[in-house]
Amino acid sequence: MERVPILKIGDTLLVSIQIDLQDQTVLALQEDLAERIVQTQARGVIIDITAVEIVDSFIGRMFATIASMSRLLDAETVVVGMRPAVAITLVELGLSLGGVRTALDLERGMKLLDSGADLR
């Protein structure tokens, strides 16, 4: 099983998903992130899905789980780079990802976290 690397930039953790995600990788990422948030005292998490071609219910639910989990650990999550076709498919599938903040690209996501806007 491949693992998704987690990079630290300042007090933000950056997760850039570059592989075709299988379910065990998704579960491992959730656990790895929780540990890294506490370990690094990160205040923000950015999940970059620019390279992700499909988001099904399992992967979509991961975003919501990570957002709730990181909030409990005092960090905010922003999902960036969703492709238009992925957004259309998610809505049709019935997964609206309420509670998950998104930004169009990495730069906007970083700004959103920096602005300290109340993302809750």
């Binding site: 071609e53 499909i54 099904d56 492709r83 076709a85 259309i88 498919t89 049709e92």
Partner: peptide, 8 residues
């Protein structure tokens, strides 16, 4: 879009 839907 249709590719994404059928793959999903």
């Amino acid at each position: 879009v249709d590719q994404t839907k059928v793959v999903t």
